[in-house]
């Protein structure tokens, strides 16, 4: 019941509203594909889609791998050390707090990073106000605020130790063991997390909204921010819903690609 009311009902409404000129006061009128046609000539949508692809790509190259390797390395430690490290790593920073402190670090005048650069005698950087640098700045916090994924740890603990012993007897080196024993075992989880991370990253909103507000010259303007602006600044709900459907189709393409290429089970 709850699932239908709050899961499917909005989606049905979305499908209807996307084809309407939605107005708060007057009854809605059906305008066919006009909401979608608007976006064909709209430069902002291309910019925002380019931005989210860039963001998702950077995120996956820089950030996505880190927890995997941290988790693998963490398994080498003694039990007591694992416990201490896990607690230290999971001293969480509420997400908004994390974003805000990073915004301060990047601050051109008072920020820590420029302070360090000034101290060491390097030229100061514009960080979030630099068109080219801004997107990387958005991704970097993820690199530092990472932790071992609980999910990876749980899966790693389930790998039987005999596999490693066998690999060792056959003379596998350290990295060979990671490559041939560990990674195939956690591949389904990696695939799942990759999918979730792509979906999540393509919908990014909080970080750019708070840190750059769309960034210098739209450099960090994401699709969801655009959607937010259309809907709640311009009050054009129909057009915004059309945009959300476009985003959905793009994400769906990724999901389908992912399902096609990551379907192997290591035990078979």
């Amino acid at each position: 019941m709850a699932c239908i009311v709050f899961g499917w009902y909005p989606i049905g409404v979305a499908l209807v509203v996307a084809f309407q000129k939605f107005s708060v006061v007057r009854p809605c009128t059906y305008i066919g594909l006009d909401n979608f046609k608007y976006f064909i000539d709209d430069p902002t949508i291309y910019i925002s889609f380019r931005n989210i692809f860039y963001y998702a790509g950077l995120n996956i190259i820089l950030v996505f791998m880190v927890p995997i390797f941290i988790s693998i390395f963490l398994m080498e430690m003694r039990k007591s050390i694992i416990r201490i490290m896990m607690i230290l790593w999971f001293i969480p920073v509420a997400s908004m707090a994390g974003i805000i402190i990073w915004k301060w670090f990047y601050n051109v005048q008072y920020g820590l990073f420029n302070g360090i650069l000034r101290y060491l005698g390097f030229p100061e950087l514009q960080w979030l106000q630099d068109e080219n640098l801004a997107m990387i700045c958005l991704v970097l916090p993820g690199l530092i605020m990472f932790g071992p994924g609980l999910i990876y740890i749980a899966t790693l603990q389930g790998i039987p130790e005999e596999l490693y012993e066998a690999a060792h007897l056959e003379g596998a080196s350290f990295f060979q063991k990671i490559w041939h024993v560990t990674l195939p075992r956690i591949r389904p989880i990696i695939a799942m997390m990759l999918l979730l991370s792509i979906i999540g990253n393509l919908q990014v909103f909080d970080q750019p909204y708070v840190m750059t507000g769309g960034g210098p010259n739209f450099a960090t303007y994401s699709v969801v921010m655009y959607l937010f602006d259309i809907a709640f600044e311009q009050m054009r709900f129909g057009r915004a819903t059309a945009l959300s459907l476009i985003l959905f189709v793009v994400i769906m393409v990724f999901v389908i690609i992912q399902r096609k290429y990551f379907k192997e089970n290591p035990d078979i």
């Binding site: 699932c3 899961g7 909005p10 959607l227 459907l245």
Partner: peptide
């Protein structure tokens, strides 16, 4: 039926939910 909603990103239903 229950899981289907997971595939659809939350942003699609954002505006309808608001309405």
């Amino acid at each position: 039926i229950c899981i289907g909603t997971m595939l659809i990103p939350m942003q699609v239903s954002l505006i309808p939910r608001y309405l």
